[in-house]
C-alpha cells in the first residue's frame, strides 16, 4: 500500500497491524542439534506450550513461515542450505538464534568445521543464550520479539532502512 511505503500510516493502523503480526507468527523450527530438542519441548510439548503466545509451530514449508528459530550448531557445510531457506521466507521475517552454538559457535568455537554464529550468514533479531536454553528461555525470547514487533516502524522495514528499536 502506498501508505506503508511513504510512512504516512496513521498510528492506530500501525499499531493494529503490528499487534496482528506479533500474535500470528508462524514459526519455522530449524532444529539442527541439541537445542532442537528443547525447541521441540517448547513447541510441541504440552507443558511449555508456545501456542498460548499466538505462535504456531510446524508450517508446511519456509515459504509460509514468518519466524525461523535456528537452534543448534551451524557447520560450514550447512550454510548454503540455511541461506537458501532464509531467502525462501517471505518478508516480513524474523530470526531467532537459539543456543550458544548458533549465537557464537558455542563450545565448538575452535572447531574447523563450525561457523561461529549464524549471524555471519543471516541477520538475527533475537539471541537466546544457553546450552541448551530452557524452553522457558525460548518462550521469553519469543515474547521479547513480540514486544519488538509491536514497536516496529513498518515503513523502515519496507524501505530497507536499518531497524531502530526504541
Amino acid at each position: 500500500m502506498g501508505l506503508v511505503e511513504s510512512g504516512k500510516m496513521p498510528k492506530p493502523l500501525t499499531s493494529l497491524l503490528n499487534t496482528s503480526r506479533k500474535y500470528s507468527l508462524w514459526i519455522f523450527q530449524w532444529g539442527l542439534a541439541c537445542c532442537a530438542i528443547e525447541m521441540g519441548s517448547a513447541l510441541a510439548s504440552p507443558r511449555y506450550d508456545v501456542m498460548r503466545l499466538g505462535v504456531i509451530p510446524l508450517p508446511a514449508s519456509p515459504r509460509q513461515a514468518d519466524l525461523v528459530c535456528i537452534s543448534g550448531t551451524v557447520t560450514d557445510k550447512m550454510v548454503p542450505a540455511i541461506r537458501r531457506l532464509y531467502e525462501q521466507m517471505p518478508d516480513p521475517k524474523y530470526v531467532i538464534s537459539m543456543g550458544s552454538c548458533a549465537n557464537c559457535g558455542g563450545p565448538y568455537w575452535d572447531s574447523y568445521s563450525v561457523t561461529k554464529g549464524v549471524d555471519q550468514v543471516i541477520p538475527v533479531d533475537i539471541y537466546v543464550p544457553g546450552c541448551p536454553p530452557r524452553p522457558e528461555a525460548l518462550l521469553e525470547g519469543i515474547v521479547l520479539l513480540q514486544e519488538r514487533i509491536g514497536k516496529e516502524d513498518m515503513a523502515a522495514r519496507w524501505k530497507g532502512d536499518p531497524l531502530v528499536v526504541s
Binding site: K77, S111, Y112, S113
Partner: peptide, 21 residues
C-alpha cells in the same frame, strides 16, 4: 564423508592448526 568438497587439509593430523585458537 564429513567435510565440504573445497576443504583443504587433513584435520586430524597433528600439524593441522585450529585457527580459532
Amino acid at each position: 564423508l564429513y567435510l565440504p568438497g573445497e576443504f583443504e587439509g587433513h584435520p586430524l593430523r597433528k600439524d593441522f592448526p585450529l585457527l580459532a585458537r
